[in-house]
Structures are given as structure tokens and as C-alpha cells.
Computed example of a mutant assay.
Amino acid sequence: MLNTAQDDQPLVTLIVAPRERFEQATMSLNKVFETADIPFRMIYVDGGSPKAISDELRANVEGHGHTFIRRPGYVTPNDARNTALPLVNTRYVVFMDNDVVFSEGWLSALVNCAEETGAGLVTPTILVGPESRMPNLRIHHAGGILKLTDVGGQLEMYRRHGHEHEMYLEKKEKLVRTETESTEFHVVLARRDMLEDIGPLDPKLAGFTDEIDMAFKAKEKGWTIWYEPSSVVAYAVGKKMTWREIPYFCLRWNTAGAMNAERYFYKKWNLVPEFSRQRGFLRDHRRHAFPFKKMQKTVGWRITVAFTTLVCETIALFASTRFIKPDMSPAPVSSAVTN
């Protein structure tokens, strides 16, 4: 078990990055402080959130003695993570999105698993749904399969989340710690030695596969990935989206940016191109911003989806002026991180 005697020397740094929204960031941050059960450091990277939210986040983070970094424009998650990594001096890093909620004991469970298994990456049980129903939610990710099969000189990728869509409370007693193959950036623990080994996170990946890229590089270097069921978090959805966060949401999920990142990733790893899942996600996920339920009843699903896409893509075009291009050649993590 984890030795918690070194209260003045935390083992873990939490790096918080924006995912797609801002309105739930304060709630998520408060949940971190309420539930984290071992000492930690935090580096919070805020990219382009509304000033009122940013001011509140800064006051909370710095009020607890941690580091807050404000970027003036919108940033991709990997760019935000790379911004924070040179400041890390702990044995472990926990990457987390800014819209996650947590159950008691989630942090010590991740660190204990890493200490006991030597894992390079540890993934918790990730649920999905409204924060108010936690933990009576469906499972989003409980470990999973990430396989590559050689097909005529290219690699075919098969990915599946463990127990996806099953009710957590019905499966809770059957979930066991096990070595696994995939993670999710909603929350994931990474050993700092592993991060030094694999180098910076790829800033060109701004779509769906940033966590897969990290998992591939970790496995390539011989690191193991473990699933820890007793650490339970949730990707909080359900709260209505507001106009002040819609521009970032639409920019994050605009077709050109997301699909260019996907094509780059598939070429990088010599994968067989197959993008139906990604296109389906973009089509359906953008409706969180614009449900248009009355329109769908009147004109049908296809026309409503087409209109939703047009609106979101137009907003993304204007929002792109606030997007700060990431550094495509960041300094290696090892050169900036000290013991």
C-alpha cells in the first residue's frame, strides 16, 4: 500500500486540461479538492475560457497553493498537457479533463496500483452521465482492448472499451484489477519515467486518438497498462450547454480539424484507414450544443443533423481566430523535469 507519511513530498501531480467545455470546470475542480485523499500538486491549464470562469478557477487553484496557467486562446488538450509537463517533479502525473467528477479514494487507488504493479499507465473505472446520479451511471471505460493486426503490410486497429454501456452498480463487484491495453484521457495516471521515455505528447493529435497514441508509445517502450476498478470517476454530461462555451466546443469538433488529426494518426502508425466511427461521433456529438428537438419533429432527423452541422461548422470557422497554434516541436520532457 501507499506510504502516506511523506506529506511534504507528494507522489503525484494533477494536470488539468480543457476538453470541450468550460461551464462544469468549477464544479469538477471542487470535486478534486473534496475527494483527493492523498497529498498532490496541481497544474491547471486554462485555455480561452470566459474571464469570469477563469478568474474563479485561478482563485480556487492558487488559493489551495497550486499552479494556474492561463492561455489567452483556445488550446488543444495535448498542447495544454505539454505546457504543464516541464513543471512536474513528482513520480506520477494524473492527466484529467476539466469536466470530470470523482468518488472518494479515486486518487490513492490509482497511485497504489502503479506502486504495486510498476505500471506505466493506470486507468480508472470511468462512468458517463449527470454528476447528480454518480455512481448510478453507465460505464464508459473499464479497461479495454486495443489490438493491431497485420493486413497486407498495414495494421488494422481494433478498439473496444471494457463493459461499455453497462450499469456500474450491477457490475461493480465483478470488476477486478487487471493488465489492459487502453486508457482514456478523461482521467489517467502516467509514471513520469514513462513520459520521459516516450517523449512529449503529440500536439498534432486534437481529435479522438491522443490517448491511443500515448498507449501505443508506452507499449512500444515496454511499459504496462493496468486497470484499477476501485478508482471511480465520471465524465459528467447532461448539463445544458451555454453560448459562451459553444464556440470552443464547435472548434474542438469541427470536421476538418478532427479528421485531419485522424488521418495524421493513422498514417503515423501505418493503420488501415477506417473513419466511420469518427464521422458518426462528430455527427451525433455536435447535437449536445444544438439538440433542435422541435426541428427534428417537424423536418426529420437527416435535415436536422445537416443543419446542426452547418451551424456548428460556421461557428468553428469564426472561433478559429481565437485558436493558438501549439508548438509542434516542444522540448523533450526529460530536459525540463527534474527530480
Rank of each mutant, 00 (worst) to 15 (best):
K217Y: 04
A256F: 07
T242Y: 07
V232F: 08
K204L: 10
K174R: 06
Y235K: 06
D202A: 09
D213L: 02
S182I: 09
L201I: 12
E211L: 03
S230Q: 10
K204V: 07
K240G: 13
V233C: 13
T178S: 12
W226Y: 15
G222H: 13
W243Y: 08
L195R: 06
Y235V: 00
A234F: 00
V176W: 08
E173S: 12
W253G: 03
V188K: 02
D210V: 10
D202M: 10
V232T: 06
K174D: 06
A218K: 08
A236H: 00
K217D: 12
E228M: 09
D213F: 00
V187G: 09
K204E: 11
T209E: 09
A190C: 13
E179L: 01
V188Y: 03
G207D: 11
A190T: 04
K219H: 08
K217H: 10
I246M: 12
D197Y: 03
W243A: 03
A215S: 15
D193I: 03
P247A: 09
T242Q: 10
G199Y: 11
K221M: 01
K204S: 04
S182W: 00
W253V: 00
M241T: 06
K204R: 15
G257R: 11
G222K: 15
P247T: 12
R252S: 05
G222Q: 14
G238Q: 04
S230W: 01
R191A: 15
P200I: 08
L251D: 01
T178K: 14
C250H: 00
P200M: 09
P247H: 13
R244S: 11
A236I: 00
M214K: 01
T255V: 07
E228S: 10
A190V: 08
R192N: 12
F185G: 10
L201Y: 09
D193L: 11
M241L: 14
T178A: 12
R177I: 03
E181D: 14
L189S: 05
K217E: 15
N254V: 07
A256Y: 05
T180N: 04
A206D: 04
